[in-house]
Nucleic acid binder design. Structure first.
Length: 286
DNA sequence: AGTGTGTCCTGTGTGC
DNA sequence: TGCACACAGGACACAC
């Protein structure tokens, strides 16, 4: 579930307690998530400061004062919960988290302007964490070959067109490919294709000219809108459950099989592509 | 090289 | 009520 907008929302939630703060204690409650945690994971973090917390695609990256980089991926069920331990009463993002200690896998205790306990919870354990050496980010297996940030300078209608050239795979599969563009997942690919009026079954290379221009615009737009929605949900976290990772969002086609298309009123279809559900309107996506 | 499929993992929902 | 099973899906390994 966490795609670029959700990960960006999580980043913005963690930033105030992580940036400028030092890892005072790191607890790993199991040796692995999706992959084994790196050797000396806790030791690589403890005593070091987070200089900045960035995002690349669906990854969070904490740049450490040691020069190393903490890489975090939420998989599909990963969440962070923040408790501001320095306050007598919970505030900020602190919260009545729904208690699920069974899946609390990693705990960061941070000391900065305030002290906080950040807990990583991940029932399905599809998430993972890794440490990349100084100057080893771009060449790490996670980022080598990754496509441009959709909301960054490297992505444009022209760049999209070039990435799709020659591809015989369906446009749906091409957009899920992180080498084409970073950060899109099943939900936002479905939504962007719907908004652009492009059939998910169309061969990627056939999405050219006006179609790819429109698709480019809708990818950007749907991500921006979702980030904005995440931002507003962040402001409500103090009064809700405090878990960073998900927010309510209204989708046009995703998970709306059989419901009416908001454009033409025909029922939304679901097909399976590459083992994944694709939701779309067969009437208005061509 | 590009494309497609299976795997990981476990909570949730559905049908018998 | 209880059980079996499909499903969710990001990244990756592997086959063709």
């Amino acid at each position: 579930m966490p795609e670029l907008p959700e990960v960006e929302t999580v980043r913005r939630g963690l930033q105030p307690v992580m940036e400028g703060a030092v890892f005072t204690r790191v607890e790993t409650r199991r040796p692995d998530l999706r992959f084994p945690l790196p050797e000396n994971f806790a030791g690589s973090l403890q005593g070091h400061k987070v200089e900045s917390l960035d995002r690349r695609g669906k990854y969070l990256i904490a740049h450490l004062s040691s020069g190393e980089n903490l890489i975090m991926h939420l998989g599909m069920s990963g969440r962070f919960t923040i408790e501001e331990t320095g306050k007598s009463r919970p505030g900020g993002f602190a919260l009545a988290q729904e208690c699920d200690p069974k899946h609390d896998h990693v705990v960061f205790e941070m000391a900065g302007r305030t002290t906080a306990r950040i807990t990583y919870n991940d029932p399905r354990r599809f998430g993972f964490m890794d440490i990349a050496p100084p100057d080893g980010l771009e060449t790490s297996r996670h980022f080598a070959g990754m496509g441009p940030e959709p909301l960054g300078n490297g992505f444009s209608a022209q760049a999209l067109k070039e990435a799709l050239t020659g591809k015989t795979a369906p446009i749906k599969a091409a957009l899920l490919d992180q080498r084409v563009v970073a950060g899109l997942g099943n939900i936002y690919v479905c939504e962007a294709l719907y908004r652009a009026g492009v059939s998910p079954r169309r061969k990627a290379a056939s999405v050219a000219g006006k179609r790819s221009d429109r698709l480019y615009g809708e990818i950007i737009a749907v991500l921006r809108e979702a980030i904005e929605a995440g931002g507003s949900s962040l402001r409500d976290f103090a009064s809700t459950d405090g878990a960073l990772g998900y927010f309510q969002h209204r989708f046009d086609v995703y998970d709306r099989e059989g419901e009416n298309c908001r454009r033409c009123d025909k029922p939304v279809s679901r097909i399976v592509q590459g083992g994944r559900s694709t939701f779309f309107c067969a009437a208005c996506q061509r």
